[in-house]
Design a protein around this nucleic acid. Structure first.
Lengths: 193, 193
DNA sequence: CAATATACTTACTAACTAATCAGTAAAAAA
DNA sequence: TTTTTTACTGATTAGTTAGTAAGTATATTG
């Protein structure tokens, strides 16, 4: 993949996370990268093509994380996940799920499909890690791991949204509350993610 | 308040919840209401004025809910809250927090302040209800009610986002998971919100 | 070396955007 | 009854948007 193409996708990703898909324009990419708006259309004829490309890269990132952390414990996998969100929080960036799902109904069908695929892929990863951590006796929760994954992702996603508005400390406060309920042994208070 | 003004705010509210603040135009309001775009500017000189008006109405709605449910139990108050979200879910509408916080950094300062005020007001209400329900022995959780309110709102907000993408049943699945952790007596499984 | 493909630029457009300003009819106030 | 205010319409605009078509320099291939 050409440098320009990669830079376009990278900046689009950043803009989606910082300002939203419907709030950035081809110009917001063209100016910083010092290319013409037509250069972006050369790689991505329609804006939705650019959106889909950003999602595909995220999808591959998730796959990489999964493959790269196969041999880690469930707890370590979850630490990795939380680390990603903590980094985003420091950069005042929300996650793609938090940015794209509110605009879902403004997207065309192919991009909606990609958004859905991305959500399912992330949730599947989290569910797997949770199940593993539960098997290890590190975490405790009732019901299916897939349902608990929804709750975990929901907390991480919202903490990014709210910490931009209410202050960055919100992130750790929410994480603490989430963990409180999943501590394998409620007498032990030192589990950290 | 004139009918036209009220209709404009009402439709703007719906459009924000369905498509997002940056994805609707004055035309999307003018055409269905059969008024000219200048009529909207008459009441709301700038789009941010319209946004702020929508938030102010929501703020008053929350105040009304609070005053109107003062004498209810904490559990009943929470049932009321969940009912509001459940109705939104049926209409494929997300909540204002879920719609406006992702776009937060694209707003001008006065509107950001209003968004923040709205978030704090809603969280305060939930915290109060949670504390009350805990005092009644109906719910159980550790730490401050304000922190738990973040988790509750986070779940409700995200469930609206995700249920549009993954199917409406997501809403109840997430609610069940949330409640599992807050059951006062873990042997009793019949608490419902 | 010639032909072709790649990676753009220049120049443009049609459609839409929020916003403005000068009217105007009707209601309310003086 | 005159004046003022309210609640708009009509007409327009400056700026932005995604998107296109035609051209060009450079690298790749036959």
């Amino acid at each position: 993949m050409s440098d320009t193409k990669e830079n376009i996708i990278g900046l689009a990703d950043e803009l989606i996370r910082k300002r939203g898909f419907n709030a950035f324009s081809y110009n917001d990419i063209a100016v910083p990268l010092a290319v013409r708006n037509a250069a972006i259309h050369y790689y991505f004829p329609a804006k939705s093509d650019l959106g889909e490309a950003v999602i595909e890269v995220e999808l591959r990132r998730v796959e990489e994380y999964r493959r790269g952390s196969e041999r880690l414990t469930g707890e370590e996998q979850l630490k990795l996940l939380v680390g990603v969100f903590r980094r985003n929080n420091k950069l005042r960036m929300i996650c793609l799920m938090g940015s794209l799902t509110p605009d879902y109904d403004t997207f065309e069908v192919p991009m909606r499909r990609k958004v859905k695929e991305m959500c399912l892929s992330i949730l599947d990863w989290v569910a797997e890690s949770l199940e593993k951590a539960r098997g290890e006796g590190k975490l405790q929760f009732e019901g299916e791991a897939g349902d608990r994954a929804l709750l975990v992702i929901s907390t991480l996603l919202s903490s990014l949204l709210l910490s931009r508005v209410l202050g960055t400390n919100i992130f750790e406060r929410m994480l603490d509350q989430l963990l409180q309920d999943m501590r394998a042994d409620w007498r032990v208070k030192d589990i950290k993610l």
